[in-house]
Design a protein around this nucleic acid. Structure first.
Lengths: 202, 202
DNA sequence: CGTGAAATTGAGCTCCCTCAATCTGAGTGG
DNA sequence: CCACTCAGATTGAGGGAGCTCAATTTCACG
C-alpha cells in the first residue's frame, strides 16, 4: 500500500482505457467518476467519497473503464494489483473483503439504477441526497450538514436530468422546509421526508 | 460444482434476504432478476441469459439482495460458496476469473445505468435490444433472430418506462424497417440503426 | 469591488405517462 | 376442430412532468 500524493481539483486520478495497475482508496476529498460519450458529453457514473474504492470495474478487462477526477483536494492510497494478488494468495480474509467490496459496488449500482428507473425528478434528487447523507454518516461525517463538491450539472448528468430540474427540485425541498440550501451548502432538516420520496426496496 | 434441476417458468431460483450458500450459472433458458418495492411493485434489475452468473451481489453481505425467477424452462449449475472458497485458495486463475466476472457485472451495470439516464424511450429500447443481441451472440446464439422470454411489462420496468411506451417504440422500429416483430419473436434487420440509437460510450 | 462561471427562475413545447378500447394469440373445453 | 376465454400486446386521445431556450441573480475568485 502506498500513500498517493495530494491531487488538486480537476486533476484526473485514473483514465479510461489505461491498464489497471492499481486500486485506489480515497482518504479525503471527493471525486467524480464519468465516461466521455461519442458526442463529447459526460456520463457521470457517480461520486467517490472518503473511504471508498476507485477502479474496481477495471477487473473486467484489466483496464479502467471510466475517468475519475478530483472535485476537491484529494488524498488517496494506492494499492498495486501485483501486490494485491500476492496478498490474496495468503490472506483468506482479504479475499472475502475484496469480494465484499465488489459485491457491494455491484449491489449499489443496481439499486441506484432501479431507483433511477422508477422515480421522478424529485425522487431522484431526494434519493441522491439521502444516499450522500448515508455514505457520509458511514464515514463519521455529518449526515445533515455537508457541502456538495459537485456542480448541479454533474448531479443532473448523474441522475438523468437537466441542471434546471435539479435546481427546481432543490428549490421545492427548500420551500417545503426539508432542506436549507445555500449554493453548495446543504442542511438536511427532514431526512425522513427525503428518504420517503427517495423510495427504495422493501 | 453441482448440476441443478430443471426449473419451470415462474419458479424462483434465489430469494432476496436468503443467505448466499451458492453461486449459480445458467446453462439454458433465461431468468428475471428483480426486487419487490415497498408498494409491492417489481423493480426489474435485468435478465439472465445462458452462460451468465446469478447471485454475485450476495458477496456484499452474504445474502442475496434480489429475487431471480425463471422465465423459460431453466437449467443451471450450482457452485457452493464453501467449495468456491476452497478452490480460490489454490487456484490463482480462478481468483482472477471471479474478479473478472464481478468487475464485468459492475461495469455493465454502470454502463447500463448511464445509458438509461441519457437516452429517451426509443434509445432505451434500442439499447436493450442491442445488448440482448450482443449477449446472445457471445453465447453462440443468433444475434438477429430471437424470442423475448420476458413480457413488455418486464422490459418496461427494467427500462423505467411504461409497457405502452415499449410497445410503441417497437412499433416505430418495425415501421422504420429496423425490426420484424411478431409478438415475442424478434428479427433484427438493421443492427446498426439500433446500435446508433442505443448510444454508448466512445 | 469587479468579473465570469454557476445557479436560479420563467415561459413554451415536447415526449412520455395515464386511461381506455381494441386486437392478437395461446391454452381450454365442448 | 372450433368457439371460448383471458392475459398480453397494440393503438388511440388527452394531460402533465420535465426539457429547451432565455433572462436574471448569486456566488467564488482575483
Amino acid at each position: 500500500m502506498q500513500r498517493g500524493r495530494q491531487l488538486r481539483p480537476g486533476v484526473t486520478l485514473v483514465r479510461a482505457g489505461e491498464p489497471m495497475a492499481a486500486l485506489f482508496v480515497v482518504r479525503s476529498g471527493s471525486a467524480k467518476r464519468y465516461s466521455v460519450t461519442l458526442g463529447g458529453g459526460e456520463q457521470v457514473h457517480g461520486f467517490v467519497l472518503p473511504g471508498e474504492a476507485v477502479g474496481l470495474e477495471g477487473f473486467a478487462s484489466g483496464r479502467y473503464t471510466c475517468e475519475v477526477s478530483a472535485l476537491e483536494p484529494l488524498s488517496y492510497c494506492r494499492v498495486p494489483i501485483r501486490k494485491l494478488e500476492q496478498l490474496l494468495e495468503r490472506l483468506p480474509g482479504l479475499r472475502r473483503e475484496i469480494l465484499r467490496l465488489l459485491g457491494q459496488a455491484l449491489d449499489e449500482s443496481q439499486r441506484l439504477r432501479g431507483d433511477l428507473a422508477q422515480s421522478d425528478a424529485r425522487g431522484r434528487v431526494a434519493h441522491f441526497l439521502a444516499d450522500l447523507s448515508h455514505r457520509l454518516a458511514r464515514r463519521g461525517l455529518s449526515p445533515t450538514e455537508f457541502r456538495l463538491s459537485m456542480s448541479r450539472a454533474d448531479i443532473a448528468r448523474h441522475l438523468g436530468l437537466t441542471l434546471e430540474t435539479v435546481s427546481r427540485a432543490l428549490g421545492t425541498f427548500k420551500r417545503e422546509g426539508w432542506l436549507r440550501v445555500r449554493a453548495r451548502d446543504i442542511s438536511v432538516l427532514r431526512p425522513d421526508a427525503l428518504a420517503a420520496l427517495g423510495g427504495g426496496i422493501a
